[in-house]
């Protein structure tokens, strides 16, 4: 994917879930290398293991086989070193904290002194344009604003890597596009590497430097599509010929990955 130093390196990873009697092979033969400052989207049908792959990288679950390296370290080591920030599909903000206090949470856990915490939170909230809402509580904000607060929180301790699991999945199309614009702006300003899970093809194409297409049962990577749309990407980008042809390309890759309905699925 890139000649630059790799931030995430996934080699021959497999993940099985042992259930009562049945074993689900969530991921099989996964190889993925993500270079510094890349924006990589994972796309695929629901249940193909996108979240599982992200959770493996985050060391929220351990692989059944294979190797995961982050910044040259094992995934658990990278987690202990707080090398990445994570954003989930739901904002997971704490009701009893103000937006400002929510953003400060990781810094509190990491033992950052109060003054530095405050300063950092002010910066992050202005980055996601929530400054006026810093003293509000989460329930006073709309879904999109809550998600921005969650992004500010994930960026608060300046992780080199941002892992995002369908962060805008619950938002309406209009808000989602605005959030996409903002995310790109933040990404360009902070210089992080982003791994972004989505099930929206336009979103994946608009944001990414490359789109990783996955298929289900067992979850595999079937295609990797480089997105060479020029940056900065704007509303105008969404109307270019190239944008549409890339969308078509990803759609076809997804369809090819799914294949015909497997006969054994009819069992």
């Amino acid at each position: 994917m890139s000649e630059r130093a790799s931030i995430v390196d996934v080699q021959q990873v497999e993940k099985r879930f042992e259930g009562a009697g049945a074993t689900t092979v969530a991921l099989q033969g996964i190889n993925l290398t993500i270079g510094s400052r890349e924006f990589v989207s994972l796309i695929g049908p629901s249940g193909c293991g996108k979240s599982t792959l992200l959770r493996l990288v985050a060391d929220l679950t351990a692989p059944s086989a294979g190797q995961i390296t982050i910044n040259g370290k094992t995934a658990p080591r990278a987690r202990m070193d707080r090398d990445y920030g994570m954003v989930f599909q739901a904002p997971v903000l704490f009701d009893w904290r103000t937006i400002d206090e929510n953003v400060q949470l990781p810094l509190e856990v990491m033992g950052v002194p109060r003054a530095a915490r405050r300063k950092r939170s002010v910066e992050m909230l202005s980055l996601v344009e929530l400054s006026e809402f810093s003293r509000h509580h989460p329930w006073q904000l709309s879904g999109g604003m809550q998600q921005r607060a969650a992004i500010a929180r994930a960026l608060a301790f300046e992780p080199k890597l941002l892992l995002m699991d369908e962060p805008f999945g619950a938002l309406d199309e209009m808000t989602r596009e605005r959030m996409n614009d903002e995310l790109l702006r933040i990404w360009e300003r902070t210089g992080t590497t982003v791994v972004f899970v989505t099930h929206s093809i336009p979103e994946a194409v608009f944001l990414s430097s490359s789109v990783v297409v996955m298929s289900a049962r067992p979850g595999r990577i079937t295609h990797t599509i480089e997105i060479d749309l020029p940056r900065p990407r704007t509303d105008a980008t969404r109307e270019t010929e190239q944008y549409f042809s890339l969308i078509t390309q990803v759609r076809e890759a997804l369809r090819a990955g799914q294949g015909p309905i497997a006969p054994e699925a009819a069992l």
Binding site: R55, A58, D59, L60, R79, M80, D81, R82, Y84, G85, M86, F88, A90, V92, F94, L105, P106, E108, V109, M110
Partner: peptide, 20 residues
């Protein structure tokens, strides 16, 4: 997911107890 979040901060059980 809140506990997962704390795990991504490498928070020890004591901090998870007090903060979450």
């Amino acid at each position: 997911r809140a506990l997962d979040l704390m795990r991504t901060y490498a928070a020890d059980p004591w901090r998870v107890l007090w903060k979450v």
